[in-house]
Simulated scan of single mutants.
Amino acid sequence: MSFGWTVLWSAVTVFVLITALFGYAVSKRRFDLIDSFWGPGFAVVAVVAFALSDRAWPGLVVVVLTVVWGVRLGWHIHSRNRHKDEDQRYVDMYRRAKGNPVAKMYRVYLLQGAIMVLVSLPVQFAQSRPASGVLFALGVAVWLVGFVFEAVGDAQLARFKADPATKGQVMDRGLWRYTRHPNYFGDACVWWGLFLLACGSWWALALVVSPVVMTFLLAKGSGKPLLEKDIVHRRPGYAEYVARTSGFFPLPPRRRGPGVGGA
């Protein structure tokens, strides 16, 4: 099946699943459920694309990498959120919505579904024209770096929060010593790796929009900026952490000195 038809069927699948999830979210009166679906949604798209392809082994590798990333992320977010109140971002969106708040939230869901189809284009394209040789190996390596950063960063933060002795403190250990968001950096690397795996022809270069969009969302959009919007005021010591720690790309901590969060 052609790439165009694969994208169409992927979009239809995402639309159906997003709509069903939204109906469930309305019944539960909790709209942050879309966050738990984000990773698994990409896994579903990958499986659909593979089912519509000739099922060659390079495409299978791309599917496996996408599914492993997506399922882990979905389970992590679900486990983190299931005993908490609804994410304040969604509460605020609902409260700010005028006219029909439910319809507004449905548009939010549809937007995330559209972004999912866009970002997953390399995964779909790789089913027909995957990279090979050194480029394929490089894509797997970049994916692996990203997956390790994301999974290890999430695990380190979870242990930190579970320790009563660190309550109220700023997490600045492990990978969090080098970047304030190792999970977001890792997420971006995963998608740059999947993009490289799709570069089996010059046409694939147009798909660079996918990792660019994902990186922008994480670093400048709904990821890092929203998370850090008011955390400096809520968390003592976070301003000093910002002053010495890279916001996204891992770097050695900056030395504290006059005018940089220290004496």
Rank of each mutant, 00 (worst) to 15 (best):
S132Q: 14
V142P: 06
S36K: 02
K98P: 00
L52Q: 13
F50A: 12
R256W: 02
A141F: 13
R29G: 06
Q156S: 11
D154H: 07
A51W: 11
G247A: 12
A49K: 01
D35V: 05
G139F: 08
A165V: 12
R82V: 13
E228G: 05
R129A: 15
A162S: 15
V44E: 04
L121E: 05
G261H: 06
G168I: 10
Q124T: 15
A155C: 03
V7Y: 03
V48C: 04
A198F: 00
T166F: 11
L17H: 00
S27C: 07
F147Y: 14
W57V: 14
F147E: 12
A158V: 14
G139K: 09
V7G: 01
M171H: 14
V12H: 05
E228F: 05
A20C: 12
A204R: 04
P236M: 09
F15K: 02
V71F: 12
S132F: 09
V64R: 08
V102S: 02
N81F: 01
K220I: 02
G139H: 09
V12A: 14
A141W: 08
G259K: 07
G259Y: 07
L197H: 00
D154M: 07
W192I: 11
G133N: 10
N183V: 09
F37P: 01
G153V: 10
K167H: 13
A151T: 14
R29E: 15
L33P: 03
L138H: 06
A158I: 10
P252E: 07
G39S: 09
G139N: 11
S222L: 15
F216L: 09
K28H: 11
G186L: 10
G174V: 10
W143L: 05
F147H: 08
R256E: 13
F15N: 01
L17T: 01
F125V: 01
G221Y: 00
W176G: 04
L194W: 07
R30I: 07
L8G: 03
A198K: 02
W202V: 15
W69D: 06
W202Y: 13
G113V: 02
G146E: 04
G23W: 08
L135R: 12
Y109N: 06
V14Q: 04
G139I: 09
A43Y: 06
L205E: 05
V48A: 05
V119G: 03
I115N: 07
V232P: 00
F15R: 00
F216M: 02
K224S: 04
L60W: 14
L17C: 11
A204C: 11
A188K: 02
A198W: 03
G186N: 09
Q169Y: 03
A20I: 13
V260I: 11
W75Q: 13
A97W: 04
E240P: 03
A114M: 13
G200S: 09
W203L: 14
V63I: 07
G247H: 00
L194M: 11
T166E: 14
Y94N: 01
R234I: 00
T166M: 11
P253I: 04
F136H: 06
A51Y: 07
V63G: 01
H78F: 13
S128W: 05
